[in-house]
Amino acid sequence: MDKKTTMKAAADIRKLCIEELAAAGYGHIGGSMSICDILAVLYTDILDIDPKNPKKPDRDYLVLSKGHCGPALYATLAYKGYFDKEQLKTLNQGGTSLPSHCDRLKTTGIDISTGSLGQGLSLGTGVAMGKKIQGIPGRVFVIVGDGELQEGQNWEAVQFIAHKGLSNIVIIVDNNRRQLDGYTKDICQTFDYKAKFESFGLHTFVADGHNVTDIYDKLTTAIKTGPAAVIMNTEKGHGCKFSEIPGFNHYMVISKEMADEAIAEVDRRLEASYGQID
């Protein structure tokens, strides 16, 4: 990977996502911002995909189980050329192809519909099993939220993945430590996710979810090791000041002025980061 290129991709995705949410006037900013760097690495450096042939059977699949963060994935897909960036401005409008939660039947490039938390990992596991049984190349990456891991179905899936030794699927945890109602530690005790996944028999790695090099290194290692999970430590709302607040940021009203300021902030931070690399 080229670190600068991927960092630029992450910033571009973040800016597109902010514009998209601002066009709607509101939306799931917190969880969308926390996964922008992860999506940038996946779509720039990892996934075997072809935006011109989005349904090719031997592609890698991306399942965004935390489906309410669809806006971040739509921004990524637009960035990759799956559809025109102008389309992002139709988010959540009646008849749009970009609904708040991911819908495989409406959006080019969305592999699996999600939104009822806890179901994406089983769906991704099924895709991985289907590929394995039929000898179809390609891997499956499933992004789940740390709050989402409160849903028991996830752990059914993890047991299954471990038991079957499914090596063509990687679980990515967006560990932003917050859920709709607040901090996960206050709502239902947080766990040592690394120890928990390992106790199920998965190879488990921990990455800084806002460091593209670390994300890339841990994902590429996880792919090689067999049944694996990568805990991405992230910040909910990461990337712009208005969403990096300790209060409620799961879902926010976003004005044009807030968006303009945030986009300038993303650019400033990117420039500053380049300086640190140099």
């Binding site: 699996i112 179901q119 089983s122 769906l123 596991t125 895709v127 179905q153 047991q159 299954f160």
Partner: peptide
């Protein structure tokens, strides 16, 4: 799958996406 109907149904759905 063992005793995990919710996962088994979801996994079946995912498998069908690949043509099974």
């Amino acid at each position: 799958c063992g005793i995990m109907e919710a996962h088994a149904i979801g996994m079946s759905a995912g498998m069908s996406e690949t043509g099974l």
